[in-house]
């Protein structure tokens, strides 16, 4: 059901002339993709330094909140531009992205990273205890930082693998993979085949 709904949405977006023009553009697509990757590096660069401080690994002699406050603005600028360009990239290639197993895993990981960030961001920036000056922050902070590092690294890796066609719908895949990737038409074909036998 959700698969059909997502595919309908993707096909609707695909119908816009802007989507096609961007997909076929000589320059714009490359500009947007490059901006996406460069702002991703700005965002993740800042995030990794903050997370590594919260893990008690780097800049242990600098108060944790100082690191978090100073790097917050460049991190958020990177984040906002990265998200906007990410949406534009999806808008340029909506159907294939919707039916990409990697894109789907990436979206799940993004949601998980977002929830983790919401839970831990405020705790990290407002140390209620007196751990601000501690080289090694308390365990719940370190867990959040480790989760953040892992999830974002996985987001980048799965984002990268969207480019590969290993599990595209036009490949012969098990039914489960068609379902996971949202290959609605391929699933219907297999269902039909099964009902005829």
């Amino acid at each position: 059901m959700l698969n059909e709904w997502l595919l309908t949405l993707a096909r609707w977006l695909d119908g816009f002339s802007w989507s096609t023009e961007l997909h076929e553009s000589l320059y714009m697509y490359a500009w947007i993709e490059s901006t996406h990757v460069l702002t991703l590096m700005l965002f993740l660069g800042m995030l990794f330094i903050i997370d590594l401080r919260m893990l008690g690994v780097t800049f242990t002699s600098v108060p944790a909140t100082t690191i978090a406050e100073r790097l917050d603005r460049p991190m958020m600028i990177g984040f906002v531009v990265m998200v906007i360009t990410g949406f534009i990239l999806y808008f340029a290639i909506p159907v294939r992205s919707t039916q990409s197993i990697w894109f789907r895993i990436k979206v799940f990981l993004l949601i998980a990273a977002g929830i983790n960030a919401l839970l831990f961001r405020n705790k990290m920036r407002n140390p209620t205890g007196s751990w601000d000056l501690d080289p090694k922050p308390p365990k719940h902070i370190r867990t959040g930082a480790a989760l953040s590092l892992t999830l974002w690294a996985a987001v980048v890796i799965t984002g990268r693998t969207i480019a590969y066609d290993w599990y595209d719908c036009n490949k012969e895949l098990p039914y489960f993979m068609y379902w996971a990737a949202g290959c609605v038409d391929e699933m219907a074909a297999l269902d039909l085949q099964a009902s005829l036998q």
Binding site: V57, T58, F59, T60, S61, V62, P135
Partner: peptide
């Protein structure tokens, strides 16, 4: 000013 502690080598 305090001196920044260097990042441990294996982590770098």
């Amino acid at each position: 000013m305090r001196k920044l502690k260097r990042t441990p080598k294996p982590i770098a």
